[in-house]
Structures are given as structure tokens and as C-alpha cells.
Simulated assay, not measured.
Amino acid sequence: MNKMITASNSVFILMLVLLLLNGCASQPYGNFIQNPSIVTSKIMADDVTAQIVRLYPAANTQFNLRHVVNDPFGHALIENLRLEGFAVQEAIQQSIQQQIFAVPNQPDTEPQKGLILSYIIDQSGDLYHVKLMIDDMRLSRAFSVQADSIHPAGLWVRKE
């Protein structure tokens, strides 16, 4: 009986550790630039907003962020979209306790309306890469950083 309780505890601890490691794994979305500049982030967010305005009607479109925003680019993008007339539903960060004790496969009480929005910002050398995902559509653009300025390094690329 004692061995059975120990084995059960071991399995529980192993599952708990795996769950915690899964939650700690790097998030696939967000800003991956170390110490991003607020000015650079604002310029890129302005450009992204202008592209979204070209593609979607402001008063009729809601964006639901897939991930928690905690960087200057994301905050500027959300502010810009709202100023342009878009509805933006921000993702809520869950604590580790909420992640552990969440009921899996629980249907939402109300289906989310709107488009799912996420982004990835990364850098290679003097190029910043902005990848925007809106539902199944992918938009990407490179930005060139020279001295204290940043400029688009090409056109928007759209993949559906």
C-alpha cells in the first residue's frame, strides 16, 4: 500500500513538473529583441497599423490578441489600433496556479468574435523582422536600423 502511494505521488509530481515546464517554455509570439527601443517600436507599430488600416474596416473589426503584450511595440500597436477605431481584446496573463488548475477542454460560454492577432518581432544584425498573424493570413516586413533611425527595408509580404 505504501509503495502504491509513493508511485502515485511520483506520477503526480512528474505531471506537475511537466506542466510547469510547458508553461515556462518560450512563448512563440511577442517581441524577441533585447531591450527594444521605444522610438523604434513606435515607428514599426505605426507602419503595422497603417497596413492593417489598408486591409480591414476599422469600425467593423475586432482583434483578439493571442498572447499577452508586455513590450513597447505591442503597447503602441494596441493604442494605435484603438485610436483608428478597431476593437482590441487583450489576452489575460494566467498565473501558474490558474494554469495548473484550469479545466481542460471546457467550452467557452460565449464564442469569441473577431480576428485572432499575434506578432513576432525579432532581429538579425541591423534588420528587424515584423511578422504579423491575423487568423490564417501572415504579413511580414523587414526594417533596417541605421544609426538612430529605422526604415522599411522592403514591401509588405502577404501570405494566406
Rank of each mutant, 00 (worst) to 15 (best):
G125E: 13
Q146K: 12
I78P: 00
L117H: 00
V68D: 03
S124Y: 11
I100K: 08
A7Y: 03
M44G: 01
T40Q: 15
Q99D: 08
Q34I: 10
N31H: 04
M4P: 05
K131F: 06
K159W: 01
T109Q: 12
L127N: 12
Q99K: 13
L83R: 15
R66L: 13
Q93Y: 02
F63L: 11
I33Q: 04
L115K: 14
F32T: 02
Y119L: 03
V130G: 00
A25W: 05
P107S: 09
R138S: 12
P28E: 08
K3C: 04
Q93I: 06
A102S: 15
I121K: 01
N70I: 07
L55R: 15
M1S: 15
V17R: 06
T49Q: 01
I96Q: 06
S26R: 05
P107M: 04
Q94M: 08
S118M: 01
N105S: 11
Q27W: 02
V48G: 00
W156S: 00
M1T: 10
V53K: 04
L155R: 12
D47M: 06
Q27F: 01
D148P: 02
F12N: 13
S37Q: 10
Q27C: 08
F63W: 04
K42A: 15
I33V: 15
P107R: 09
E84D: 11
E79L: 11
D126N: 14
H129Y: 05
K42D: 10
Y119D: 02
F143C: 02
I92G: 07
E79S: 14
T6K: 04
N105C: 08
R138H: 14
T40F: 11
D71T: 05
F143Q: 01
P104S: 11
I38G: 05
L115H: 15
M4E: 15
Q34M: 11
A7E: 09
L127F: 15
L83Y: 11
H151F: 13
A91E: 13
Q123I: 12
Q51K: 05
S26Y: 10
N2A: 13
A153L: 05
I5A: 14
I134F: 08
V39D: 14
